[in-house]
Amino acid sequence: MSSRDVILAAVRAARPPAVARPDVSMLRGATVDLAANFTAACVVAAAEVVTSVRADLDSLIAAAYAANGRQVSAMSTTSEGVTRPHSFSDTDVFVCEAVIGVAENGAVWLPLSRLRYRAALFLATNVIVVLDRARIVNDMHEAYRVVNVAEEEFGVFVSGPSKTADIEQALVIGAHGAKSLTILLLDE
């Protein structure tokens, strides 16, 4: 018998008494001001939130990191070309647009199609995420109803810049990934 069949047979023999699949559809927190809650949650996660309108997008990005090293934008109409992911290791600023934001925890959903250059999100020193203010959901329950997480090869919820507390539980921003995360919360 293969290991697969041995394990499955052992699982079948060991099955505890059946427990019904619980209904999770009723779980949702009270909806309040989504943008205000989202912004407050971002602050807790050490992300910066800038509120503006989409027409100002280019000037906002320029203002955030004016002529500051290599900038890679997944929103750009021009492509970086097909390159090894390693080639993004000198990225100073990476810009991309999220599908949704989650008010309860300040996370934004970034699937591969929005990242285009997956490695750049993690290699870049600073990350700017654009989010349409109308695309904020209340909590993770709603997030998984709105987004199909299996649609693409890869997708990630990101909440704030990378951090660690592995040395004496002291919080340090910028472990291996981004040292700063700025959310541009835009009205259309």
Binding site: V102, H141, Y144, F154, G155, V158, P161
Partner: peptide, 28 residues
């Protein structure tokens, strides 16, 4: 995924007091 949402709400809060981990990566 509907069940996953429940665990992502309790995991980081229980572990470190964060609302969610910085990166919650889905590999399909």
């Amino acid at each position: 995924p509907a069940e996953l949402a429940v665990f992502l709400r309790v995991l980081a809060r229980s572990a470190t007091g964060q609302r969610v981990t910085v990166y919650t990566s889905h590999v399909h």
